[in-house]
Amino acid sequence: MSSVEHPLRKYLRPSVEATTFCPGCGDGTVLTSILQAIDELGMTMDDFVFVSGIGCAAWIISPNFNADVLHTTHGRPIAFATGIKLNLPEKKVMVVSGDGDLTAIGGNHLIHAARRNIEMVVICANNGIYGMTGGQVAPTTPREARTITTPYGSLENTFDISRMVQASGASFVARWTTYQPRQLTKSIKKAIQKKGFAFIEVISQCPVQFGAKTGAGSAVEMLEMYRKSSISVKKAVEMSPQEIEDKIVTGEFIDTAKPELCEEIARLKERIRGEG
């Protein structure tokens, strides 16, 4: 046994020997990127409250991070996180969950948290399939992809989560793939410092369910596909919708300053007390 320790190991619970992810899963890269961002900002785990829902990606934080972690019911992490943020406004609240949890069952919570513009970071690991339950079709599954519940190909259109959250009124929206962990770390750093609702979608490979069922292949083949098909937001603006169809548009979609809910509530309290 070597005595060398990974520099980010100090943020994990001492009891954690290995993550629960399948070999080649992109969620591990998301985990490292989150810890790297916290490390580079010089923050500690005590500054955060982490919330996750149900699904593979919810396991990124739940048994691993040595911090206050809430592993909540399916689809409801943002509802729990809203309560935490309103009662502990000095804490940074981070929600990490998957596409099935945040957009399929918990879609309304996501939309309305973005609309309220409450300060929190939401990281959605989007693998495009229900991985934990065996590879059923999800709202984020690409059109015509074969899964175990769509053996002749999915007939439904794909959910563009980032555009939806941007339209709902979030202050910060970014999308990266697991092939761009350095850019992802930079965006997580920006999102943590953002006063307002910050959403980051990470297109993440699932070689065991998505790769095997849809024919996308192994982890390496999927990363190679991300490398080839991702284009930046600036480039995408100049391209026609037909050209963008098979591409993954990555980058920061929006980064604005808007009135934030916790601050508005504090201001309201002050105003009412002053008048009364």
Binding site: E17, A18, G24, V220, L223
Partner: peptide
């Protein structure tokens, strides 16, 4: 370069390290 052997999930299924090197 140090490899923490016990934390690894193998080059047969994962192989990301060799792909990005």
């Amino acid at each position: 370069v140090y490899i923490l052997r016990e934390a690894c999930k193998g080059v047969v299924d994962c192989d990301i390290c060799r792909f990005v090197c």
